[in-house]
Simulated scan of single mutants.
Amino acid sequence: MTEATRGLLLALFCFSTWGSFPIFFSLLTHIPPTEVLVHRVVWSFIFVALILLFSKQWRRAVAALKNPKLVFALLSSSLLIAINWGVYIWAVGQNRAVDASLGYFINPIVAVGLGVIFLKESLASYQKLAILIASAGVLYKILGVGEFPWIALTLAVSFGFYGLVRKQAQVDTFTGLALETLLLLPLSLLYWGWLTYSGEQHFAINSDGLLLICSGVLTAIPLMAFSAAARRLSLTAIGFLTYLTPTLQLLSAVFVLGEPFDKGDFVTFALIWLALIVFSGGAIRERQKLPQSA
């Protein structure tokens, strides 16, 4: 098996796992979203910490904790990812996984916009057109359907800012997740303790407990696969495969969970998909020019 084939299989596993999240979190809708979030943080930390310990990479995490600027950056990213996770879990519980999938379709374009605003990056003509088309999709949702897509925008913006912060934090993806969950751990444990004291917690040695543990494991394992795939595949391949996640989330929401997908949704998604086609096509053409100009 070639390295490229191995990278492709790892990427498919990663994005397919993330794409199945609506189905997985639908199994936990009888548990309050905040409690599910707490367990996702706790078990993610435990699993990642064990990986770092057994792989003898824990020294990188200790070194990172000695850097105040890096800790502050990771504290910011940990709060952003907690918002992202919490809103997504809540959305699935409210039968709004279709709206949540829209957020991850919008995210690449939001990320470009944040790069322009905060990193002073310039926009190519195809990027401007893609942002304009995506904005039309959001505007149609507001004016045509009469609904502000706050779930999609919250997920897209929180993950966009998360990427912006992590882009400037000098730490690898896996160590970063370990430190982010570590920073969220004290508050998570306090909340878990309060739930236990008040008799409202759902964790036990049963199917619920196993699913809550899996919420952490399913956070860490795909991330490991993504890191390994990114080392073996081109940015173009990774960029295209990234859209597999929201596509599978949308299909899962409509065909497995039975959420509605009406004409208004179709128009909004069609405009977002058109924006992504323009965005991806322009990016490919730009990359194809690089070797020629070099």
Rank of each mutant, 00 (worst) to 15 (best):
Q168W: 15
Q168R: 15
A169V: 12
A169R: 06
Q170E: 13
F174P: 02
T175E: 11
T175H: 08
G176R: 03
G176C: 03
L179K: 02
E180T: 14
E180L: 01
T181C: 09
L182R: 10
L183D: 05
L184C: 04
L185H: 12
P186N: 01
L187R: 12
S188G: 10
S188C: 08
L189M: 08
L189V: 14
L190N: 04
L190G: 11
L190T: 15
Y191S: 00
T196Y: 14
G199E: 00
F203R: 02
A204I: 04
A204W: 06
I205K: 00
N206E: 00
N206F: 04
N206V: 10
S207A: 00
S207C: 01
S207E: 07
S207M: 03
D208S: 02
D208M: 02
G209E: 08
G209V: 04
L210V: 14
L211W: 11
L211M: 07
C214S: 03
C214H: 09
S215G: 06
G216D: 05
V217N: 02
L218Q: 09
T219N: 05
A220M: 06
P222I: 00
P222W: 01
M224N: 05
F226I: 12
F226V: 07
A228E: 14
A230S: 13
R231S: 01
R231T: 08
L233K: 10
S234C: 15
L235H: 11
L235E: 12
L235S: 10
L235M: 13
T236F: 13
I238V: 11
I238C: 12
F240A: 00
L241W: 14
L241I: 06
L241V: 09
T242E: 04
T242M: 00
Y243H: 09
L244C: 04
T245W: 12
T247W: 08
T247C: 00
T247H: 07
T247Q: 01
Q249A: 03
L250C: 05
L251F: 07
L251R: 12
L251A: 04
A253N: 10
A253M: 12
A253C: 15
F255S: 09
F255W: 15
V256M: 03
V256H: 11
L257D: 06
